[in-house]
Simulated scan of single mutants.
Amino acid sequence: MPSNASDLRDTRELHLFNGGPPLRLLRLWGRFDPDHQHVVRRALIVACVGWLPLLLLALLSIPGGHDEVWRAFLRDASVHARSLIVAPLLVLAEAACIPLLGELAHTFRDRGLIPAAELPAYERVVHSIRRLRDWWLIEAVAVVLAYLLAVLLVTHVPTSFLPDWHRSDSEGAPLGRSPASWWAMLVSLPLLLVLLLGWAWRIFLWALYLWRVSRLDLRLVASHPEGAGGLMFVSYSLNSFSLLGIAIGVIVAALELAHLLAGGDITPEQLGRVAFGSIVFVLVLFTAPLLCFCAPLLRTRRQGVKAYGALAQRVGTSLEDRWMRAPPGPETAEPLSSPDFSAVADLFQSVEKAYQMRIIPVELRSAFTLAMATALPFGVVALALVPFDKVLEKMVGLFL
């Protein structure tokens, strides 16, 4: 019985963030895939539903003498990026991110960071996150909000502010919009918004979980070799958010590319500023939840410096009294062969770890990986700013 209870707790934590919009809709539909084995198929379906009808409707404008709709659709890099890249990436990120976040949540218990006295409070934290994850109102709000934003765009944003393929000169065209525009506003855009809102909710739940756990009396170790009291593992969450970083980078970079293809002027300096702003936004978005551990880590560091410093003082004083201040004798003839020095050296290494303990559990390598993932789409746009012959010349110059 205890083993079954332990397995049940492990399962609850490993699937702690496996929900929210639109996964609950899939669960109600009977198509929920808790192990994300069919995530590639769902990503392809999302791409087909969001983009393929747009392509077909734009093609149908050619026989009607509106081939400008087709040409404008092809030039609109933002719509292709949103439906063909961003939406599928948001689905694929479920398989890359959700299981890892569950494993990180389980690590708090598995490493013994939750003392026995705090286990009831920790169970309440897990239960509250699961209840919020499965809250049906969030699913309904996500769908309603997505369509509300779509309706507001249709009714309040003139087609003159949109790419040319949204407009139609045909008689009887509702609000002067093309059929492709209506599909984009009523299907493609709400689908993308629901996926984005679902990830916004999961990120909120992850941040809420970390904040509530940080309020517990965690069993942190000042001299832990990780350098952050044993909490550095939470930084691995940044790696799992890399696909989301790419998706955010694609959304912003595609707007710049669409502006460039429409005849606008973009300098490398302007693109660099936009890329830098996007990278900073992504880093702040995904590292901010980790900062809730700064207070307990600072407290642990202060306590560790005090305790380890006092211990080092006592041991160091005893060592000097025995080997440096005591009168020479047979027992002090070979100091280097004594185990005292190796034991003290090991102790002083632990003391040094306590003094060097970080109060921000963010690994620079993980942050760099996330930053590079976000910057990747801007590198593609940067290539569009440079003539191909210049790129080829630079590449040849690397080998000659």
Rank of each mutant, 00 (worst) to 15 (best):
A180V: 01
Y209C: 01
E103P: 00
V91Q: 00
L197T: 08
V234G: 05
H259C: 03
Y308D: 00
V284G: 07
Y209S: 12
D164N: 13
V282L: 08
L16W: 03
W29N: 06
S366T: 07
H224I: 06
E171Q: 14
C292I: 09
V213E: 09
P335Y: 04
A258L: 01
V154K: 07
A333C: 03
A121C: 04
E393I: 05
R358A: 15
C48R: 10
F388R: 08
L26D: 11
H80R: 07
V157E: 07
S338G: 07
R82W: 14
N18E: 09
E13S: 05
L23Y: 12
F233M: 13
L208F: 13
L210M: 13
L119Q: 10
A222S: 11
A95F: 03
V252L: 11
G198I: 00
L392K: 11
L191T: 11
T332D: 11
G309L: 06
E269S: 12
L398H: 10
M1K: 13
L149P: 00
S318V: 02
R302H: 04
G397D: 04
L218M: 04
S242D: 05
R273Y: 15
G19V: 07
C292N: 05
G249P: 06
A333L: 08
E256T: 06
L255W: 05
L28G: 06
L137E: 10
R322S: 01
S318Q: 14
S350M: 08
L400P: 02
P115A: 08
K394S: 09
D169Q: 11
E171N: 09
R111F: 13
I138C: 09
M324W: 04
F286N: 10
A373K: 09
G264S: 08
R41Q: 11
L57R: 05
L298I: 09
P387C: 08
T317M: 12
Q349V: 03
G65L: 14
C294D: 06
A142E: 00
L59S: 00
L26A: 08
M357S: 02
L195I: 04
L193T: 11
W182M: 13
A146R: 06
R9V: 10
C97S: 01
S128N: 10
E363R: 14
G229Q: 01
W183T: 00
Y209I: 06
H259E: 10
H224G: 04
A200P: 11
L162T: 01
F348L: 15
P328W: 13
R9M: 01
L220Q: 02
L255Y: 14
L16K: 04
I279R: 01
S168N: 13
